[in-house]
Amino acid sequence: MRNLRFPRLLAYAVAFYAVLQLLAVTGVFNGYIMHIVNQSLIYVILVVSLNLINGISGQFSLGHMGFAAVGAYVSGTLTTIIWKLAPDNPAAIVLFIAAVIVGGAAAALVGVLIGFPSLRLKGDYLAIVTLGFGEIIRTMLNNIDYVGGPRGLLGIPKFSNFTVIFIAAFLTIVVVRNLVQSSHGRAMLSIRENELAAELVGVNSTKYKVLAFAIGAFFAGIAGALLAHLIQIAHPTQYGFMGSVLVLIMVYAGGVGSITGSVIAAFGLTFLSEGLRIVIDSLAAATGLPIGGEWRMVVYALLLIFIMLFRTEGLMGNKELKIMVIEERKA
């Protein structure tokens, strides 16, 4: 037997899950808070996977929601149009998971396609090309009547729940963390720091850039699939440029290259954006000012600017909390 220990991250995850589930079951956290938790977890998947492309491999991608769209539409088409799954179907959950994985795989395929331009392009140019790809995906979805066109893909069964989303988010974190702390991850980091130097010491930059895009896209596709099966609709406008920008903001607010930071930012900014509703409504009630929901995003944007001004490297910088670090095996 190898020297097996119960991994620290798993322990924390199980504890976190148990606490949240307990709070939900006892009704301390109502359906609204759990819905925000679910949304945060979907953002965790998106942000961690984008961090792999942007933060860890240093490839500036602005089309992340395009991958999510592929995952959402492919899995949604499978469960809605082809299999016509109903929740009382005994094979439903298995088929649902299969659909989510197929959605992720399709997104990964698109990710490889988009990864290739990254071989020739850098920085802002790559950003604008990935933005273009994302918009092309959105435009295509808008014009394919089979998946609803501008009406969106409707009637998707509700299969996503806290448990499924939590497991997916956890697996995303584990895979990306293990990758980053493996020799492959070191190779990716070296490309970010100095591509020329990395190539000189024998790193196959082509392979790793495409790999980063493929894995990042895979998880984005999973996130899209889970979101579609949570809100029961997939619509092209959800996956446009602004959606990608929101994910990008979370990557940078959390700290480039820090998985811990990505997780914190995904939760923090999702809760912030919701919390501001209540803050503004209470403020209006307390002061009698005629302010409403339209001011929420004004405050959100201001806070974002302040975070960047006063904590430029993001909340976590490039550091990780200890639980994210794979512990050394003791002999």
Binding site: I249, A301, L304
Partner: peptide
């Protein structure tokens, strides 16, 4: 204030400024 920081942080700030102006005018 971000001039000598990584340029991507200016980019995110620029996005924030853009959002702020739009939402402010609208509100």
């Amino acid at each position: 204030p971000l001039r000598y920081k990584p340029k991507l942080s200016s980019l995110i700030t620029a996005i924030g400024v853009s959002m702020f102006i739009e939402y402010f005018f609208s509100a």
